[in-house]
Design a protein around this nucleic acid. Structure first.
Lengths: 200, 200, 200, 200
DNA sequence: ACCGACGGGACCTCCCGTTGTT
DNA sequence: AACAACGGGAGGTCCCGTCGGT
């Protein structure tokens, strides 16, 4: 029972990286075999199909992405600080991403067309969760008086997510983190301006 | 000569849509055959490989994306108006995209890993061209006095592009244009605030 | 009418060389197109199928092989001289073959299995003709008193042909004419010994 | 490990016959599938490419050719006897060849043009080995006093090989072993004459 | 008479998933 | 539980031959 879980974990971990780097269609069972050192039987004994691996690997990638973020947010107190910290977490995506290959949400969303409804639904759920997380920070900021009351939390959350994801795409295309920092800089300024005005 | 070009165009057009919707790895020659009504001979008589189709299809998709944008920008005079118009063009991406399947730059960038260097370079070139286009509008705004002098044109361009691309990703994931509009709204406000402050 | 023949000749000549070098299965219509500068229509307007080209190309190759041989034999009078001359003709096969690629009879014979009965029959006819030619020389030698009466003309002819063809094979494998000369040398000696003994 | 080797052997054996009969270009994977009863997965699980099968099949064919020859030579003592025995082995090539389709060295040599350098090198190696084997017999004959000292071992070996190969070609073309025996008969006589003169 | 586009099919290779085996 | 062999099928490429056009 424990051995099984360990092997499943090995497969899922390796697959998550491969899928994130080469896409779902571009990653073959053979790649996972090589990455895990397992034979075919070892993989299909733990998963019934490639799609099942895809779903679990995506879930695993999400956990890898979320954990360090939540941890980092826990280190800060006020909402603006948390938002700044969130941006800084993503600014490190190019140099040291939680899962190699960029943001799994972005990558999966782009590839998950009509033929991958299962993954598409998971992507939406992940995005909803992420948006809620940001919106909650904004609400906290309103409660604690650090963020203006007339700011639409949902709007801001969606705006942040969009910019962050687009910035990660740029980072992947250009191959460095320069564009990432550049793209997110206005968000830092946005946070400070909301705060300032909140005081006024 | 005319017949060939016509058929090539038919292939490229169909392929551009297919690639944009299902990805490069996820689109098969068979799909292109069905979409064009051609047999294999008809396709490989005009292109020597799938990769060649990919490259030309991406170029075609770029033209489809750029043309309506340039056209729309030409209808406006001042820089802020142009920037608003640019955002509005992309807000229509969910309901009526120039190429079905979302933004070809985004989609190609996400799929183009180390194994597709040729496409990756084209993506970077496209992004550079787009950034230049936006930066030029900002510079024009400075000249005409509608945009503050201390705005960094390049930063703003990258920020816009990131947000727009991320918003298109959201639109594709959620399946409507609600998130798109939501994500871009702060950019509209940003434009107006730059202008206001420029007056001050 | 004259133009057609000229084009057919161009095709046949080019095809003969290609077939002799790369084999029938290994030569494609595209190769013939490139070698002749013709398009598909130009080829299939003169021949109804690849097999028809094969048959005519083989016939052409045979003529190319036979003509210089007959011509050379005509320059000599006695049978032993003719036989020596014949061997010398073939000793030049490696450096300057009448058709590039070796002996078309050998090449065609090896490739012509059950699926190429038509070519196989032509090969046999060519071999029969060649054997007859050699046997006739031997018979002439007997008449003129230069060759012993108890020599079997047919046996000698077949022996010569076998050795010559095998020697050509060696020349192709090794890439020079050293082995060719080496393999045929005993035949020269054989001729002289037959003559000497005939005198005894 | 045992199962694999068995299947590989099955593939190699079947392929050797097919290649020898229909040529390398003329033999398709489908033919090997039918001959072995295996599916594509079974073949490409044991060999990475058709070329790899070609190389191994040629090596196998060589072994099939050499073994009975070496065995037969071992049954004789003196050099002339061995040479006669060698010829007799090849005289049986038409009726019962070690590999159906004729001599693999001949067939491979004829087909192996510039595009098959790997096979061509193997052919040369096989021919060298064969020539050495014959030359060694001649040298043994000189030592034991059954063959004249002034006979060039290498020349004789090459001559024998050429005649034998050419004779096998004739046998394949004509479809019986009559020509084979006819072509090799002078070699038998040559052996006896060398012996006789050695005594003088 | 020749060109060039195309249909249709075959070939090699690879890939997913199953099965027998250890 | 993991391995290794295999079935079955699809994908990209190429190739023969036809047909409309010039």
């Amino acid at each position: 029972m424990k051995k099984t879980d360990q092997t499943k974990r090995r497969i899922v971990t390796a697959a998550a990286t491969l899928f994130n780097r080469k896409g779902y269609a571009g990653t073959h069972i053979r790649d996972i075999m090589e990455a895990t050192g397992l034979a075919k039987g070892g993989i299909y004994g733990n998963f019934s199909s490639k799609e099942e691996i895809e779903v679990e690997a995506f879930a695993h990638a999400l956990r890898c992405v979320r954990e360090p973020l939540v941890e980092e947010l826990g280190r800060h107190v006020t909402a603006p600080e948390k938002l700044h910290a969130l941006l800084r977490v993503y600014e490190r995506y190019a140099s040291s991403p939680p899962v190699p290959g960029g943001c799994p949400i972005l990558n999966t969303s782009v590839e998950a067309d009509d033929a991958h409804q299962r993954l598409r639904r998971r992507v939406v759920k992940a995005l909803d969760g992420w948006a809620t997380m940001i919106a909650d920070i904004v609400k906290q900021g309103k409660s604690e008086g650090t963020i203006r009351e007339d700011i639409d939390a949902a709007d801001l959350a969606v705006h942040f997510i969009a910019t962050i994801e687009g910035a990660i795409m740029l980072a992947k295309a250009y191959g460095g983190d320069g564009k990432l920092v550049q793209a997110l800089r206005p968000l830092h300024r946005l946070i400070d301006e909301e705060l300032v005005r909140a005081d006024t």
